[in-house]
Nucleic acid binder design. Structure first.
Lengths: 213, 213
DNA sequence: ATCAGCATAATTGTATACAATTATACCATT
DNA sequence: AATGGTATAATTGTATACAATTATGCTGAT
């Protein structure tokens, strides 16, 4: 049993990020440390920490007198996809190059779980495994720079309520693409990984915004 | 006089980031909150806040028992340049599109100061104005996503001690390129801005790592 | 001499107390 | 009624106190 205890600050961050990106807290709403402290039942210290992290990721904006909820706009979504399409295929290719057995196992597991939950039509779990798939690849690249850039971008997209991958057809296709990407990474085929990944992101983009560009 | 008072936490962050990226604190060194608190003469609270931010940018790594200095490696530099070359020209093109008079004025000022300090051979000031030039462009893009990604990347490069733009020939060429980029942005010419910027980054990269790739 | 175990110290995590700043509301004056 | 000023309250910034965990070193037994 080596259960890593998660700090209150981390939990608060998780909850707040979720509540904001999922729309529970509306854009423009004002959050204060005291009220959050009261409503969440923890002291201001962990609250402050979480707010600072959210502020750094531009999910809220600290005004000096409360924090205003910013959330994420459709324009943000487009920018995020633009950046991901420009750099994430390269990151995946690096993963194919630097892969370790342990990471390959973890990636395979993410794919297999996605296939399993696809059958169950459990979209929440599918999204969870989607995060694991992509973040595992970020780690496999062995580049903290790529990881630091891509993790927050992916998290924002992932949790955005409108970005529901609930559309069944896309979900199935997406999982299928993950399977093929996984195989390319496992085989260490950098070029193929790059191309499959670029196509994967293009498809996701087109599905989200429509074919017309 | 509306001097925005800078919080202790911000100052601590600035100082620590500088000390780490400039090499004062060596890679692998262990920082503890108590010692920093003592040596900097402030309580642990602002220290913690600064450490968290540094950790989020992977400049240090929190181990649960002190924070290990990570700094920035040459591999990081390459990754940063890769990403910048992929997305920063687009950001500059957006700046050319969304420019405002006020921002144009600020950008012009940055270029003119650089030209002035180039004559004075004041490399520190040149670097400072280089930061202002690039960060102004990030702001002009009016995209928080691009800005959030690019600002930390540029800061890391900027402060890296080996990345001294002290080489006179490159400094002169760089300032000249800034001037031309500024003119393209002022004119609102997106395509030209994109191309000039791409070339600017390519030149900076080649100067730092040598032509061979 | 070596190793186990326990006491001690060092460190982070959290809560609370206090300071400083800023908004707000109320009251008095015109 | 409008305005200005002042007291009050709300909020963040900082410091400190306390809790919990973990490393460290010492002591004693074999």
């Amino acid at each position: 049993m080596e259960h890593k205890t998660i700090s209150l600050a981390d939990q608060v961050f998780e909850n707040l990020e979720n509540d904001i990106l999922s729309g529970k807290y509306a854009r423009g709403e004002l959050l204060t440390e005291s009220k959050l402290s009261l409503s969440m039942g923890v002291s201001r210290t962990p609250i402050r920490e979480a707010l600072r992290r959210l502020s750094q990721e531009h999910i809220i904006e600290e005004t000096g007198k409360g924090s205003v909820v910013v959330g994420i706009t459709e324009e943000d979504l487009r920018d995020i996809f633009f950046i991901r399409r420009k750099i994430e295929p390269e990151c995946a290719a690096m993963a194919a190059k630097n892969r370790t057995d342990e990471q390959i196992a973890k990636l395979r597991e993410a794919v297999e779980f996605q296939e399993f939950y696809l059958g169950k039509k459990d979209t929440e779990k599918i999204k969870l495994m989607d995060s694991r798939f992509h973040e595992t690849i970020y780690n496999m690249s062995a580049s903290t720079v790529f990881s630091d850039v891509l993790v927050p971008l992916h998290r924002k997209i992932q949790k955005y309520r409108k970005a529901s991958v609930s559309n069944k057809s896309r979900a199935a296709a997406s999982v299928d693409e993950h399977r093929k990407i996984f195989e390319a990474i496992e085989a260490g085929n950098e070029e193929k990984t790059y191309e499959l990944f670029a196509k994967h992101l293009e498809n996701a983009y087109n599905h989200m915004f429509g074919k017309e560009k």
